[in-house]
Each structure stands twice: as C-alpha cells, then as structure tokens.
Design a protein around this nucleic acid. Structure first.
Length: 389
DNA sequence: AATCTGTCTCAAGACGGC
DNA sequence: AAATCTTGAGACAGATT
DNA sequence: GCCGTCC
C-alpha cells in the first residue's frame, strides 16, 4: 500500500517538491516503470463484463496483453522511452502485509460465490474485480510482449520499485513512472505520477523531486525513511495513535524512531510488539536491487513477425491491428530519428515552453551516454503550482 | 471546536466509428 | 511441493487535545 | 462525448 498519507503530507509540508508537468514534456524521456500495477489494472478493467475478460480460444486471459500493447504504443508515440521492471521475490518482511491481503481476497472470494448463487450480477462484477490474481506466467507474457516491442524489460531480484529507483539514481532513466509512493522512500531522484492517465482526462503529470522533498520537510535522508515507516509502510506496523502529522512532528523534534520511543509515553502511544522498525529501515536504505552498472538501455524497432507469431497465432489478436501498431511505432521512431524538434508535432511552437527545447538539445548533445538527467538540475523550477486540499 | 487517526469502501483501459 | 507478488483516495466515526 | 468492441 505504499506510504500512507504521504502525498497529502507532502502537499502541505513540502509543496515545492511537487510540480505539475504536461504529458508532452516527457518527450524523449527515459522512464522506469513497475509493470505489476499496470498488469493488475488491465486484468481488472480491460474487456470486462461481469466475470468475463478477453481470452483466446483456449480460454487463456489476454486482457493484460491487449492493455499493455495499447498503453505501450501510446507511450512510444508520445516519444516516451519506457523501461519495464517486473517484481521478483517479495522481501520476507512483507509477509505480514501479504497475509492480510490474502485474507481479504479469500473473504471476497467467498462473497463472490454467494453473489453468484444469488444471481446478483452487479455484485458479482464488483467482487470479481477484487479477486483478480496475476500469475507468474502472465507477468512473463507481458515481459515477452515488451521485448518484442523493442523495449528493455527486466525482472528485479526483489521489489520492482527499488530497482526502478536504483536505475534512476544511476542516471539510466530520467524518472520513475509510478503511482506508488514507496519509490520516493527508496530515494528515487524523481517520481512521476499520472504518467499514463488517459489522453481524454488531460490530467497533468505530477512530479516529485526527492532532494526537494527531504529539504522541504527539513529532514535528512535517514529521517525521511523513519517518517515513512511511522506513517505506515508494507513492511511493519505503526505506533497506534500516530499518523502522518504526528509522525512528522515527532521526527523533527527527536530525530529518529529510537529517540521518539525514549521520549513518548508508550502507554498512550503503544508501538507494535517486537517492532522491527530497524529491519524495515534497512529494506528501504539498502534494498536488494538489480546491478545496474554496465547496463546499456536500447529501444529497438518492434519485431513485427515475432509479435504476429505471439499475439495473432497464439493469442488470437487481429492481425491488422497488430501490424497497425507496429507501423505506428515505426513511424514514431523515424520521426524521432529524423526530426530534432519533434515538439512541432504537438502544436504551435510558441506554446511550447522554451525549457523543453533547451533540454532536448542538452540530451542529444550528451549522446547515448547513460547518464541523461542525474547531474542536470531541472531549470524551470519556478513555475510549480501548489495544490490545496 | 478543531484536528487527527483508524477503518472501511470504492475504483483501477483504450480505440474508433458515430 | 506447489504456487506466488499491484495501488491510492475519500467518507466517516470516534478519540484526543 | 457516448458506446460497442478489443480477444
């Protein structure tokens, strides 16, 4: 569940760390993306009527593939360069949280069965969304799809978000595109939300800057991790009676969880029994991540025949749709290669902020060196809009 | 009276033709 | 031995200061 | 913009 209440806390206490961006400003940006959340969304939403989803003749679900194909092509056409990262084994400390989720799912499964028997169609649809599971095989199918589309894809050793953050720290990508605020706790320099919001919604991308986050809160990196643990994370429970606001106050006052425990009345604010906050801290501070040194990311042309083999022959996609997507991607790639100023495709030049042009030049100058972004302070910081609740 | 926490509920895509 | 692992936001009641 | 369709 990420970090409870962190977004609200930041918008009140570190608004300067948040900045709204246009979707089009991600032109030519490399972005690391945790694939698992997307897969879940597609399994839940794509082609669903009642308990029905998209399937091939054999009855295998294909919703995740349809969703990923469309979303990925949209990103590529927008000039975004995605890197997909898949979850590995969950850390053992997540066991408690996972057990809770399992209980809830089983509860929903029981209710679903009852609703089916009662013939309550509406209830069946609602509950079946809550019982969705993603198998390893389905994840691997999405990975295969990404690779056929020419996109780098990796399986992380552990939490995908941690490896995404590591890629961003290493300068392999400009930002991590996610809705999960854990990523900021893993100290990803830049986190982008709403990156995939539907075109129609025109929701702006919300960008979080890590350095500005901790500076805005007035905390050190270690203290920020302690704050996140106190707010509530996936790895351990929290002190009863202490939520985000009190947590921030206490951390600023005392500096660390150890000191807080010494200072507060633990009768009134009982910490969890055998509280393993130090273990959680370690998971955030030194997570198990992929070795990203020496990785050379590249975005290749789609393997059209491979896609036809996989999606058409095996999964019964319509061939002209698949070939159509390939054509659109190829066209976008050609445009990017031949045009230095792709932004002219997106509207009159005068509307485009000059920072985009500048950045574009900087990046092309730096060539395909793997460190686009890290050592570059973004310039247009002045124009952020604060958001009130 | 105002603030904060804990719990429970919900919702989660995208294209193209009209 | 076999099978797994995604999330945020808002409403609201009740406790606390 | 709404709605049927994607597999």
């Amino acid at each position: 569940m990420g970090i409870k209440g962190l977004t609200a806390l930041l918008s009140e206490n570190a608004p300067g760390a948040m900045r709204e961006q246009k979707f089009t400003s991600y032109l030519d940006r490399r972005v690391a993306i945790d694939a698992s959340m997307h897969i879940y969304q597609f399994m839940i939403a794509v082609g669903r009527t009642g308990e029905q989803t998209l399937t091939n003749e054999a009855g295998e679900v294909t919703s995740h593939l349809q969703g990923m194909l469309m979303r990925t092509s949209r990103m590529l056409e927008a000039g975004i360069k995605p890197v997909y990262v898949f979850d590995g084994k969950p850390p053992t400390m997540k066991g408690g949280e996972l057990a809770k989720r399992k209980d809830k799912r089983e509860e929903a499964e029981a209710a679903l069965k009852a609703a089916r028997e009662a013939g309550n169609q509406e209830e069946v649809e609602k509950l079946s969304k809550r019982t969705v599971r993603v198998s390893k095989e389905q994840s691997m199918e999405v990975m295969k799809l990404a690779q056929l589309l020419g996109i780098p894809a990796f399986e992380a050793p552990c939490e995908a978000e941690a490896t995404c953050a590591a890629m961003c720290k290493a300068g392999l990508v400009w930002a991590v595109g996610t809705e999960d605020m854990d990523t900021l706790t893993f100290a990803a320099p830049r986190v982008a939300r709403n990156l995939m919001a539907p075109k129609s919604a025109e929701k702006p991308v919300l960008e979080f800057d890590y350095e500005k986050t901790i500076a805005g809160l007035g905390l050190t990196a270690d203290q920020f991790i302690d704050l996140c643990i106190l707010c509530g994370c996936d790895y351990t429970d929290t002190i009863r009676g202490v939520g985000p606001k009190t947590a921030l106050k206490l951390i600023k006052e005392h500096g660390s969880i150890e000191k807080i425990l010494e200072a507060i009345d633990t009768e009134k604010y009982p910490p969890p029994k055998d509280w393993e906050f130090a273990g959680a801290r370690e998971l955030f501070k030194n997570p198990e991540v992929m070795d990203v040194s020496g990785i050379n990311l590249s975005w290749k042309a789609p393997d059209e025949e491979g896609l036809v083999e996989f999606l058409v022959k095996e999964k019964q996609f319509q061939e002209d749709r698949v070939r159509g997507v390939c054509a659109r991607i190829r066209k976008a790639r050609q445009g990017a290669a031949s045009q230095n100023r792709l932004e002219s495709f997106f509207g009159p030049p005068k509307i485009i902020s000059s920072t985009i042009g500048k950045r574009k030049v900087e990046e092309t100058k730096s060539g395909k060196g793997s460190k686009a972004g890290l050592n570059k302070k973004s310039k247009g910081v002045s124009g952020y809009k604060s958001k009130k609740t």
